[in-house]
Design a protein around this nucleic acid. Structure first.
Lengths: 159, 159
DNA sequence: ATATAAATTTAGCCTATGCTAAGTTTGCGA
DNA sequence: TCGCAAACTTAGCATAGGCTAAATTTATAT
C-alpha cells in the first residue's frame, strides 16, 4: 500500500496559486444561487406563462420573503426584472444565463446517466455539479460521454 | 439537433421533491468549507508537522481572523482541536473527513485528466466538483475512468 | 532578560441567505 | 362593489463567512 498515495507537497512559498482556487469557489457560490433561480424562472415562464414568487418559493423549498430578498438582489445585478406585486421576468442577461445553465444541466445529466448513475441520484448530483464546470471541462465531458456511449453500446445500444 | 432539448415540465403539484434537491445543495455548502479546511490541515500536518493558522490563511487566501472564526466553528462541530495560541489538530472525525475528501479529490482529478482536461483547469474544477459527488456517482465515475483509460490505450497509444 | 516581532484573538463591521410575524396590495367571488 | 383570501413586502432576527483595526500572547534575538 505504498503508492504515491498523497504527495500533498504544499508550497508554502507560493500559496497564491492555491488561494486563487478557493477564491474561485467562493465567487462561484454567489453565482450558483443566481443560476438556480434564473433557470427555474425560465422553466416556470415556459410551462406556466409566468413566474410567481410563491411558486419559486415552493419549488426551491424556501420561504417567500427569502425569495423576495434574492429576487431583489438578482434585479440589482441585472438578471431579472419585476415590478412590485407583479410576476418576475428575465432580462436578456438572465435569459442567457438560464440557457447556459440548462445546457450544462442536460450535459451533466446525460453524462451521469451514461456512466450508470440511477436517475434520482443523477438529478440530485447534477444540481450540485453543474455550477462547477469550466467550459473546457464541459467540452471534454461531452466527448467522454460520446466515447462511453459508443464503447458500451458497440454491439447493440439499448435506449 | 432537434433533440428533446428541454422539457422542463415542472410539477407544481409536488414541488417537495425538487425542493429537497436544493435543500441538499444548501446543506452541502456548510460542509464544503469544513472539508476544504480539514483537507488542508491534514496536508499541512503531513508536510510541515503542524498546521498553523497563518499558513491556512495564506493557502486559503482569507484573513487570519476569518480562519480563526472558522476553526472555532469546526472545533464546536468536532472536526478539529486546538488550544488558544497553539496549532491546530484534527480529531478522529476530522481525519476521517480529510481522508475521504482526499480520495474523492484524487478520483475526480484522475477522471478529469483521463478525459483530457489540462492539469491546471482540472485542479481548479476538481476543487469545486469534489464536494458534490454521492458515493454511487463516485463508484460509477471510477468505473468510467477505467473504461476510458482502457478504451484510449487499448492498442498502445502513447500515454 | 527583555524588547520586539510574529502569531493569534477580540471587537466591530459588512453582505448573503435563511427565518417568522406582521403589514400591504391585488384580485376574485358573492 | 366590496370584503376577504391569496400574494407580496417590510421589519426584525439569526448564522455563516468575509473584512480591518486593535488587543493580547508567544517566541525570538540581542
Amino acid at each position: 500500500m505504498a503508492e504515491d498515495r498523497d504527495m500533498p507537497v504544499i508550497d508554502l512559498q507560493d500559496s497564491g496559486k492555491r488561494a486563487a482556487l478557493f477564491e474561485r469557489i467562493r465567487r462561484d457560490h454567489s453565482v450558483e444561487i443566481a443560476e438556480d433561480y434564473v433557470e427555474l424562472i425560465a422553466d416556470l415562464i415556459e410551462t406556466n406563462g409566468e413566474a410567481r414568487l410563491v411558486d419559486l418559493a415552493d419549488l426551491l423549498g424556501v420561504s417567500r420573503p427569502t425569495v423576495n430578498n434574492t429576487i431583489q438582489r438578482l434585479q440589482k445585478e441585472g438578471y431579472v426584472e419585476s415590478k412590485p406585486y407583479r410576476s418576475i421576468f428575465l432580462t436578456d442577461k438572465g435569459r442567457a444565463v438560464a440557457e447556459h445553465a440548462r445546457q450544462r444541466h442536460h450535459m451533466v445529466l446525460d453524462f451521469l446517466h451514461t456512466i450508470g448513475v440511477p436517475a434520482d441520484i443523477a438529478e440530485a448530483d447534477a444540481e450540485g455539479l453543474e455550477h462547477h464546470l469550466s467550459e473546457q471541462t464541459l467540452d471534454c465531458l461531452a466527448r467522454a460521454t460520446e466515447a462511453l456511449k459508443k464503447a458500451s453500446g458497440h454491439g447493440d445500444n439499448q435506449s
